Amino acid sequence: MKRYFLLFFLIFLLFACKKETKLEQNDWQKISQNVEIKSDGHFLKLKSGKFNYKIPTSKLPFKRIMLLNASLVGYFTELSLENKIIGISSPEYVYSKKIHQLLKEGKIQNIGNEQKYDLEKIIALKPDVIFTNYIASFDNTYDLIKKNGIEIIFLDEYLEQNPLEKSKYLLVIGELLGVQKEATVRFNEIKNSYDSLKILAQSSSVKPSVLANEMYGNEWFLPGGKSNLAAFVLDANASYINAGNPDFKAVPMSFEEVFAKSQQAQYWINVGNHQTKKELLQINPNYAKMNVFNTGELYTLTGKEERKSNDYFESGVVRADLVLKDYIKIFHSELLPKYNLTYMKALK
């Protein structure tokens, strides 16, 4: 009797496991606070911000891609999908050498810029899909493209404040372009690298004070305490001067407010794309009053910059681990003695 009971129990367990696995496949996979994705075999469903997509799997994977903003390029170069791109806007802001080679060969077309997209060329090229950030003022342009049977998918990665959730958009691209396994492997590598670096940073007993960004006009847009920048500084085991602020976005402050907050700052990061401290002073002489300007260390985002393009805003969007590694090298250089900065550069 015991044998029959055990056999019955194992069969029940087997079916229960199968049922659970099937349910997991049909559940929404959370990419971030803004993006979720799932497949039911017939449709790939995507939630991206306020937009919902239901794409027949018969139309996947997408083979002919257009990109309307450079910040999404990094996901395609990370997965070696450059050959799927047939059109790109504002190529002068793209860093990838392979993209520029394909442009030179005519395999990727320049489709204009945000001031004036070449709609005739876009429609004539008949892409399977266009990926872009959503800009409300372009609704008429989007509607015209959609009326010509072209799918537009809005991916607003710049809204993500968790560094690894930004990297995780790789899984969305993987699903839509049929490289799910490659995307999963690549994301896991980035995540494991990031997590290891975070643990390494915590091994330092020093926690320096950090200031970020610079003034534009009469306001200093200081990233909020829940921002992407604040997350990087925390994970790099440093103390961000605006960490107590509850905002996700940058907070406009006067010079006097930032001056008061940054008295103990030892590092000043993300100081635009300036070449020298002298150049920085020419923009705002008040910087000379700041202790961090006179005795601290300043770093710009010009480590991989070429003409109008900057790889920090391209591959750096995806490679959260390398961005974190740069910050750890800056704040705790003894932990990474042989590492040279990737995206950052000391301002002299």
Rank of each mutant, 00 (worst) to 15 (best):
L234R: 14
I86P: 07
E182N: 09
K325Q: 15
Q263E: 15
Y93Q: 10
S204I: 07
N213E: 14
E334I: 01
L335D: 11
G112K: 10
N83F: 05
G178C: 05
N310G: 11
A260V: 09
V292I: 14
D128N: 14
V179N: 05
H332A: 07
K116L: 14
H274G: 04
K329M: 00
V210F: 09
S309C: 07
R3L: 15
V172I: 09
K166V: 02
P223E: 09
K198T: 10
D143W: 03
N286C: 02
E20N: 09
S309V: 05
E82G: 05
D118M: 01
K104V: 05
L103K: 02
I283M: 11
F154S: 04
N140G: 06
Y267Q: 07
H274L: 14
V73F: 05
N148T: 02
Q180N: 07
E305A: 13
Y169F: 14
L347P: 10
N286L: 15
S80I: 01
T21S: 06
D321C: 10
K345V: 04
N245K: 08
S80R: 08
A183C: 05
A136N: 08
I31D: 02
E36L: 07
L6E: 03
E82K: 05
T21Q: 12
L177A: 00
Q275I: 08
E157D: 12
P246F: 12
S58I: 10
L155T: 02
A238Y: 12
